[in-house]
């Protein structure tokens, strides 16, 4: 995973707050075909992690690709990754290249 994305990086976000605290836009069949981070809320898990940035494109979540997923499907997948008690973190593969 990620081998074809030379500028990608894996970011592990610990569930350190009750919310993930990111806003995303985009998804299949929109102008932004892969979801992009548009906001990082102060005090959320993503902000606490310190490694996610506004403008980054989310390629994978816990190893699952975002390619071909419509916005609601991508958002649901991220929400479920944060909600599940199986892991106390969410892994994001992100790239600065849009």
């Amino acid at each position: 995973p990620g081998l074809l994305e030379p500028t990608s990086s894996l970011v592990r976000v610990a569930k350190s707050a009750s919310t993930l605290g990111i806003a995303i836009e985009g998804g299949a069949n929109t102008r932004q075909p892969i979801p992009r981070i548009v906001t990082i809320q102060r005090g959320g898990s993503a902000h606490n992690c310190g490694q996610l940035k506004v403008g980054q494109v989310i390629l994978e979540v816990n190893g699952a690709t975002m390619r071909g997923r419509e916005h609601r499907d991508a958002a649901r997948l991220i929400a479920e990754a944060f909600k599940t008690k199986e892991r106390d973190y969410v892994d994001f593969l992100v790239t600065d290249f849009n």
């Binding site: 919310t19 993930l20 605290g21 990111i22 806003a23 995303i24 836009e25 985009g26 998804g27 069949n29 929109t30 102008r31 932004q32 075909p33 548009v38 906001t39 809320q41 916005h71 609601r72 958002a75 991220i78 929400a79 944060f82």
Partner: peptide, 15 residues
């Protein structure tokens, strides 16, 4: 001639 984007903008979801 300039090519126009026909794809719609996306919703934004807060997670």
């Amino acid at each position: 001639r300039e090519k126009r984007l026909t794809l719609p903008p996306s919703e934004i979801t807060l997670l």
